[in-house]
Simulated assay, not measured.
Amino acid sequence: MTLAFTICSINYLAQARTLGDSLRQTNPDWQYVIGLVDKLDQANLPASLLPDYPMLEVDQIEIEDFAGMCDRYDITELNTAVKPFYIDYFFRNYPDATEVIYFDPDIIVFQPLTQLKKHLGEYNLVLTPHICQPIDDWLIPNELNHLNTGTFNLGFIGLQKTEESNRFVQWWKKRLVNECRIDLCNGLFVDQHWVNFAPIYYDKVWIEKHPGYNAAYWNLHERQFSQKDGVWRINETVDLQFFHYSGYGIHKPQEISKYQNRFTFDARPDLVPLFEHYRQCLLNNHNETYRTYPCFYIKPPKMLYYQKVRRALKSPLNALISALEK
């Protein structure tokens, strides 16, 4: 059995439902679970807002220092830090699951992922790099940006349930308890930099360069999109497998992503139908209502601001800068 999951707080349930709907259509034999970094009994969601997918709340997966992680992390860091803990939970508690696959909630799957299943029968891990071809300008994101954020995009990872992949998960868990931070000065960008080591430390790691996998704003320079007979194609050669709508917001529909300035929809009309489809899916799945729910585990913004200032001042680099300025 293949188990696919995502992780989000209630404010991202529209995205998680949209991902689940796409998996149900394209890979109906897979089990899909929403890992919820939130408290349903505190949110009191009406029945109409409860997804038609199982939700596993984070306080049920036995994270030893979860309270400390809540104190240390903002909502992005926390939702990212618990990823290997969920994988570990699924390895231990879902004996029929031979593969565990993580997708960020802001992904739509467009095809049966048969090649992924094949590779997970041969390899312990499957990873996708941010880019597969050089970038020839200095717009954002460029190669320097990817050096800061990691070789691989961890909005997706596939794992065969093996002893080797479990060793990787246990190592990854230890790193993310304290070091799943957005702290570029200290070489950290949530969970992603750590996985740069995966192909070095662990055996049988497949680096998936198929252009239909994890298509997103960071690799648009190497991928053109077209649609024929209802099937999305990339570079007119391969089918789009899944698209990652990272940084897209329906309240700024003119922006491909808030994290890039290389492309516009005027310059890339091939993308317009893909994003119009996604926007409508989010609206249909109650995005406007979900986004009003604050995460139970996250402190108010003012407290988080002072927490991050204190953390920054503990950085050796920042301490040196402060000393030189005096």
Rank of each mutant, 00 (worst) to 15 (best):
T151R: 15
V126A: 07
P134R: 06
D136E: 15
Y123I: 01
N142V: 07
T114D: 15
D136H: 10
Y123W: 14
L154F: 05
D136N: 15
P141N: 07
T128F: 00
K118D: 10
L147H: 12
L127W: 01
T149F: 12
L125S: 03
W138Q: 14
L127N: 03
N142A: 11
G150W: 12
I140H: 12
G155Y: 01
H119Y: 09
K118E: 14
T128D: 08
Q111S: 09
N142R: 14
G150F: 09
N142Q: 04
P129E: 08
N124A: 01
N142Y: 04
L159F: 12
N148L: 13
H130C: 13
G150N: 10
Y123N: 09
N145Q: 13
L159W: 02
E122H: 09
P129C: 10
G121S: 09
H146T: 09
N142G: 09
T151M: 15
L159M: 14
V109P: 15
H130E: 10
I157T: 03
I157V: 11
V109D: 07
P112F: 06
E143H: 14
L116C: 04
L113G: 05
Q115F: 01
E143C: 08
K118Y: 08
F152V: 10
F152D: 12
P141Y: 00
P134L: 05
N145S: 12
P129Y: 08
I157M: 08
L139P: 00
L147G: 11
F156L: 13
I107R: 01
P112E: 09
N148Y: 14
I131W: 02
D137Y: 02
